[in-house]
Design a protein around this nucleic acid. Structure first.
Length: 647
RNA sequence: GCCGUUUUAGCUCAGAAGGUAGAGCAUUUCCAUGGUAAGGAAAAGGUCCCGGGUUCAAAUCCCGGAAACGGCUCCA
């Protein structure tokens, strides 16, 4: 019998007989590991615990409590769900199914009526039955022809079979008389899945292409322990409470009125205060870093966007042009770059001016698809913290790194930590979506990657995520609900300078072509406020909080004057303070200040009037502290000056 | 845009077998004048998302539309 050689995570290498299973390998290491093992991972691919191995390689033993172990559990639960669906519904077809870090899903298609949310509880019961029977799950191999016969009439399965055929054969899971295409690894029997929950039903395009038919997707999750499921459900609930739309409503930050228009938010005074604070901060910051802030019109002649290429490549995201009746067509701008190009082009530029940094809080309009709109995260009118630097070829690297450094500085001020870099390239399969110049694309993409590598930063690479005019470095964050979104972005652009025939006069007295770097640091005001609301859970750091101080007199009659005096003094210092004059009990007013997440609540009564002091209660704390008025003013000013930093 | 669900007072939600609706909180007024998370009472507040149809009668049934929500696709 031939021998297989396996390398373990600790780099030790052991020999086993051909046909050994992951389970037996685990047992050979220790009895306890043998018990805990649920699957193996050979060269990064999950394999069933009982599957005979015929190839050596790097091996890992997967235990039930690991992330991979959870995937195996969920993959098993997905198979049980599929079997339950197949039992309960006739003529149902299956699309893809997948297990990931959040749970698992199964796609189905049923010609007449789709599976609805109401049927989830019945499906759960059917799954319970299958689990109770503790049916063994076997892996069987069928020839492609047999496999296709098995799924006769299910075009999706037929497609998947073709994708999964290796050497003319396809692996299937077999549970009783139910068979389903095998990918990844599953547990040995249905009884090993105990804790699961069917969560929701949603639509999903077959193979993720919007030109394909839409299938019904059932989302669900599974865990080893009830406690873990409970914790997960609690986390989902907490995420909902953190959702900027929920907090935005509670704290009266913004609203959207369908009568006026979807995706066109109204900023209430509280939200407007937060936004104004951010705007002032970022404009000051950029000016200090050599940016020249400008204002440019949100409307422009359509010809501008024909020249820029937006009309050709970006039209479906643009509002239809306004026909002015005299041959003039006006367009609401979807991006600010052409506007800033006009600023650049207004003078003859010298190499001495480069890098020329033009910035604006630029309002733009994009006709987002109705289904994509979401609170302040996805809107149709937005104001971008936009900036374009015009550089000479040999300045790209340095300017790129400068921008990145500035970005990190800004992130620190807002205490933003949870993000990752993504290099976004064009889709090589679908180049007609982009400006057509292979050489430019390759050059720009290589330059971006080179700059990131030189800084030694971690990033992921993603094809098909570029802007139509160039590749990007995107900073990806997650919303409360776990959806990924782009916050900041730096984009390299050789195209627009070409299209608008931009020049600068070089040291040699000749004309040269500049390169543009598009960059957004704090995203759009809409998305950024949404993001901050979620990471702070509505408890904005003092510098951003719409109401920074609430003063509560113990008795309106006796202490109202003192409260007003403090209030005036704080307002003189530009601190957002107010006195609660409502004729309510103190406890009520304090509760109100706390539920509105106001950073500082000051209670003033006889003691404070006599001692020229204040009783300070900070948001979220039960303790109060008596401080001199001067001491408090000093403290809050320091607090505001420190932004959101958490050092 | 697509699939599914939803839309009732400022907010969170009940309810309505077809006979024009209710709670809590918020608001206003009155009483209570208080020391760190809800004092009491009363009042006011509704095109039951919009349009059309069926009906003696529609908030409820039917058709169409809009918006929101969960996803998919797309994206700052």
């Amino acid at each position: 019998m031939s021998q297989l050689s396996f390398e373990f995570p600790d780099n030790s290498v052991k020999q086993f007989d051909d046909g050994i299973t992951a389970e037996d390998i685990a047992k050979s290491i220790s009895i306890s590991l043998g018990k805990k093992a649920v699957a193996g991972k050979v060269d990064g691919k999950l394999v069933n615990n009982q599957e005979p191995l015929h190839k050596g390689g790097k091996i890992e033993i997967i235990t039930g409590d690991s992330q991979d172990g959870l995937s195996v559990l969920r993959e098993t639960a997905a198979q049980i769900l599929k079997m339950a669906i197949a039992n309960d519904f006739k003529n149902i077809q299956f699309g893809e199914s997948e297990a990931d870090e959040d749970g698992f899903f199964v796609d189905t298609d049923k010609p007449e009526t789709q599976i609805s949310v109401d049927q989830l509880s019945d499906l759960s019961k059917s799954m319970e039955k299958i689990i109770k029977q503790d049916l063994p799950i076997k892996v069987v191999e069928l020839s492609q022809a047999d496999a296709l016969k098995l799924v006769d009439g299910d075009a999706y399965q037929a497609e998947l079979i073709k994708e999964n055929t290796i050497d003319g054969k396809v692996k299937f899971y077999e549970i009783g008389d139910f068979k389903s295409i095998a990918e990844g690894a599953v547990l040995a029997s249905t009884g090993k899945v105990k804790i699961f929950k069917l969560l929701s039903v949603a639509g999903a395009y077959w193979q993720g292409k919007s030109s394909n038919p839409m299938l019904q997707r059932i989302y669900a999750t599974a865990f080893n322990k009830q406690k873990e499921l409970d914790a997960d459900l609690a986390k989902r609930k907490e995420a909902h409470e953190r959702d900027h739309r929920v907090i935005g409503n509670e704290l009266d930050l913004f609203f959207v009125d369908p009568k006026v228009g979807a995706g066109l938010p109204y900023w209430m005074p509280n939200g407007a205060t937060i936004r104004r604070t951010i705007e002032r901060y970022i404009v000051d910051k950029e000016v200090a870093h050599g940016y020249q802030h400008v204002y440019t019109p949100v409307l422009a002649n359509l010809d501008l966007y024909k020249q820029s290429g937006h009309w050709a490549h970006y039209r479906e995201d643009m509002f239809p042009p306004m026909d002015m009746g005299d041959g003039e067509m006006l367009e609401l701008r979807p991006m600010n770059c052409p506007s800033h190009i006009q600023i650049y082009n207004h003078h003859i530029r010298s190499y001495r001016e480069l890098p020329l940094r033009i910035a604006e809080l630029g309002m733009m309009h994009r006709y987002e698809k109705s289904g994509a709109l979401s609170g302040l995260q996805r809107v149709r009118e937005m104001t971008l913290n936009d900036g374009h630097t015009f550089v000479a070829l040999d300045q790209i690297q340095e300017e790129f790194q400068r921008i990145l450094k500035l970005m990190v500085e800004v992130y620190n001020d807002f205490d933003i930590k949870d993000y990752k870099f993504r290099l976004s390239y064009r889709d090589p399969e679908n180049t007609e979506k982009y400006f057509d110049d292979d050489e430019m694309w390759n050059k720009a993409q290589k330059m971006l990657k080179g700059a990131m590598d030189e800084l030694g930063l971690d990033y992921v690479e993603a094809e098909g995520e570029a802007a139509f005019y160039g590749p990007k470095l995107d900073v990806q964050t997650k919303t409360a609900l776990g959806n990924e979104e782009t916050l900041s972005t730096i984009q390299l652009d050789f195209m627009l300078p070409e299209r608008f025939d931009l020049h600068y006069v070089g040291e040699d007295g000749k004309q040269h072509r500049p390169v543009m770097i598009h960059r957004g640091l704090v995203s759009t005001m809409e998305r950024f406020v949404a993001y901050l609301t979620e990471i702070y859970k509505g408890a904005f750091p003092t510098w951003l909080a719409p109401h920074q101080v609430k003063i509560i007199p113990v008795s309106q009659d006796k202490h109202g004057d003192y409260a007003n005096k403090i209030n005036d003094q704080l307002r003189q210092l530009k601190i957002r303070s107010s006195v609660d004059t409502r004729a309510e009990k103190m406890g009520y007013l304090i509760r109100d200040a706390q539920t509105h997440k106001i950073p500082y609540t000051l209670v003033v009564g006889d003691e404070e009037v006599n001692g020229n002091s204040v009783s300070v209660r900070r948001y979220g704390e039960k303790n109060t502290e008596s401080e001199s008025l001067d001491g408090f003013v000093n403290e809050i000013q320091k607090d505001i000056a420190s932004y959101s930093r958490n050092e």
